[in-house]
């Protein structure tokens, strides 16, 4: 769910609607990932606020995927500097705005999780989806809420992740070399606790048990249990015309599949629209009139017109009803 801030000014899109959507998901037992687009000088001061909002709804919110803005189109250097924000900038802001609860060193580049994928592949003998993107494209971490202090505790503060990944690599090699998988699983279970500092582990959490379930059982309920107890914080910074890097494109794992069966990296598709997006849309798209004729309804008939923000508010929805004047963020 798009969620660009905690005030109507930073999130005019769905500030009023978001609490209702979350409540509906809570009732339906569905998890939510918040996806804020981060723009410097617009909403970068609310990254911590977004995290606190997610923490208040941690039973429903499984993840926040911060997306530093990709400035498509050309603009003057001064304007670029005003709006562009990078992954390290966001990480720094989050540290500042959470009073160090989620520090800079809690974050890992996305492909760091490869040893986990490789281990599961070797253990289950089934290929898995692997996030092998360029390290500069994204970062992530897991946080847990301490039931007593109500503070967020990042996984890095009580798990030696580097050691664990190294150990997983070693065991993957053993599995691929023909070692008995049950023997390897037994070794893994006995060693796992040495990577976890139990005294620093948040109250009410048994991470070793969750990890054993997620890595060895590898069924949806075990993986689900891990995600219910944790909240994933991720970042993905799409490229723009000024920093497009072919090496990153070569390792992309977010693609568009076009009707002519071409697979195009996200950043090529959107950042060089005249080569990809525009041509493809022109070739395969249909006009609004054609769509309406084909479907027998008006396209705008299902459009949500913001009735919630004009009507009554739910108790404790967090809306600042006095701040009714909203300036929409104009795109560039």
């Amino acid at each position: 769910m798009s969620f660009d801030g905690v005030t109507p000014r930073t999130n005019p899109k769905n500030h009023w609607e978001a609490p209702y959507a979350i409540e509906s998901c809570r009732k339906a037992g569905i998890g939510v990932a918040l996806v804020p687009t981060v723009i410097k000088n617009i909403n970068d001061h609310e990254l911590g606020g977004i995290l606190r909002f997610a923490q208040r709804n941690i039973d429903v919110v499984r993840a926040i995927s911060y997306q530093p803005v990709s400035l498509t189109g050309r603009m003057k250097k001064q304007e670029r500097e005003k709006y562009r924000i990078t992954i390290p900038d966001c990480i720094e802001r989050i540290e500042e705005q959470t009073d160090g609860e989620v520090p800079k060193d809690a974050w890992f580049p996305v492909p760091s999780c490869s040893p986990v994928t490789h281990f599961i592949e070797a253990f289950t003998k089934r290929p898995q989806y692997e996030l092998s993107i360029h390290f500069a494209c994204g970062a992530g971490t897991y946080v847990f809420e301490d039931k007593e202090t109500r503070k967020l505790v990042p996984i890095t503060s009580f798990v030696d992740l580097k050691g664990l990944f190294e150990y997983l690599d070693e065991k993957t090699d053993e599995l691929n070399s023909g070692s008995n998988k049950y023997l390897v699983a037994a070794k893994f279970m006995s060693k796992l606790n040495s990577f976890i500092e139990k005294d620093k582990q948040p109250t009410g959490l048994n991470l070793a048990k969750l990890l054993v379930g997620a890595l060895l059982k590898h069924d949806y309920s075990s993986v689900g249990q891990f995600h219910i107890r944790s909240m994933f914080l991720g970042m993905m910074h799409f490229q723009d015309k000024y920093n497009q890097d072919e090496e990153r494109l070569q390792r992309c794992d977010i693609h568009y599949l076009t009707p002519d069966m071409r697979i195009i990296p996200f950043c090529s598709f959107n950042v060089i629209p005249e080569w990809y997006r525009d041509r493809i849309q022109k070739k395969y798209g249909i006009t609004v009139e054609e769509w309406e004729k084909k479907n027998g309804e008006k396209l705008e008939a299902r459009l949500y017109r913001g009735t919630l923000r004009r009507g009554k508010h739910a108790d404790g929805c967090g809306c600042n009803t006095s701040a009714v004047h909203i300036e929409p963020i104009t795109g560039t």
Binding site: T172, D173, E174, N176, S177, G178
Partner: peptide, 10 residues
Amino acid sequence: KWGKHIFTER
């Protein structure tokens, strides 16, 4: 020490 691969035994 190394593991088994296409191009080597463990």
